[in-house]
Simulated scan of single mutants.
Amino acid sequence: MATSSPLLRYAESRKNLTGSLCGLAGVGIALTGAAGPLWPLVVGGLYAAGALIAPPERPATPEFAEEGDRLDGVRADFATLRAYLAEVELSATARERLTALDTLVEALLEPGWVTDPEHLHVLARTVRQDIPEAVDTFVRTRWWSRFTSGAEAPEGHLERQLAALHEEATAIATALQEAEAIRQHIHTKYVEGRGN
């Protein structure tokens, strides 16, 4: 059986293992006679309770091979980041914001656009540190927030972080757009001035 089988993945999951341990406790209770004729319900109920309280599976945060601010390295790490993000469960709003940020970063990382080392450094930091840390922290916090009433929802924090990162990437895109507009204007003046 392949390890990618959903049944095998569930059999190895934290939810199944925790549920099985709780179910075994239920079997122990049943063997003492405390559960009476309802022992199957006790065992099943304890398994279900264990599966519900178990922490969710979370994909491992990506490890990036590159550390410098070379465009090719950042592009390779961006592909790694995308594979990680595809495995993470997010709310619809957070996924929408992440998709918008992903699209913008992808466009900025196209060869020939970002030449300023400072802009490339910001994009490298966004890909290698900011997005993975924001998403991983959300995944970890989301489970614990079930036990803490009145706390701010982790989705709100993630959405605000993604909005701030999108704003930062938009500033880079705006700077590139302005630079291209100036370049076009200068070239127009140059071409028109040759005729005089």
Rank of each mutant, 00 (worst) to 15 (best):
L8D: 00
R9P: 07
L38K: 09
A100E: 15
H121N: 14
R14Q: 13
T80E: 05
G36N: 07
R70M: 13
S145K: 05
L21S: 15
T137P: 08
D69T: 13
S145D: 01
Q184H: 01
A107C: 03
E152A: 05
A11E: 03
P111Y: 02
R146D: 00
G23V: 12
R95H: 13
G33T: 07
G193N: 06
T174N: 05
T61C: 08
G73D: 01
L85Q: 01
P40W: 01
V74I: 15
L71E: 05
V74C: 14
W113N: 12
A163G: 06
L98K: 04
F64P: 05
L38G: 13
L7A: 14
A49K: 12
L31I: 15
A34H: 01
T141F: 08
S91Q: 03
Q161K: 08
S145P: 00
A134F: 02
G193L: 06
A11S: 13
Y47A: 15
H185F: 00
R142V: 12
H157K: 04
E110A: 07
T115V: 12
I53R: 15
A134G: 07
G23L: 04
G112A: 06
D77C: 13
G50V: 08
W113Q: 12
V191E: 14
L71Y: 11
C22Q: 13
P6Y: 06
R160G: 06
N16A: 08
L109Y: 09
D69Q: 11
L165C: 09
R128S: 14
A94F: 09
W143Q: 09
G73P: 00
K189H: 11
T3E: 14
P59H: 01
A34D: 01
A25R: 04
T61G: 14
A92T: 15
R183T: 06
L41N: 11
R70P: 01
T126Q: 10
H187I: 02
G26A: 05
Y84H: 06
A175E: 04
D77T: 09
D136Y: 05
G23P: 01
F78G: 09
V191G: 03
T137G: 13
E66W: 04
T93M: 13
V122G: 11
L108A: 05
V122Q: 09
E12T: 12
V127L: 10
P6I: 14
T126N: 07
A34R: 00
T148E: 00
F147H: 08
L52R: 15
P132M: 04
V105G: 10
R97N: 14
T32D: 04
L158E: 10
A151Y: 05
T170F: 00
G33I: 10
A179Y: 07
G36M: 05
L71S: 13
T99Q: 08
E89H: 08
S13E: 01
P40H: 03
E67Y: 06
K15V: 03
T126D: 12
V127Q: 02
T137W: 05
F147W: 11
P132D: 02
H157Y: 09
A65N: 08
R14E: 05
T3K: 01
S149Y: 04
D77P: 00
L81W: 06
V135A: 05
I182T: 01
S4L: 12
G150W: 02
V114T: 14
G156M: 07
T18V: 14
E178F: 00
V43Y: 11
A164Q: 02
D116A: 12
L90A: 02
V135K: 00
G28H: 02
G23A: 14
A25K: 09
L41C: 15
C22G: 15
T80S: 07
L85W: 00
V135D: 03
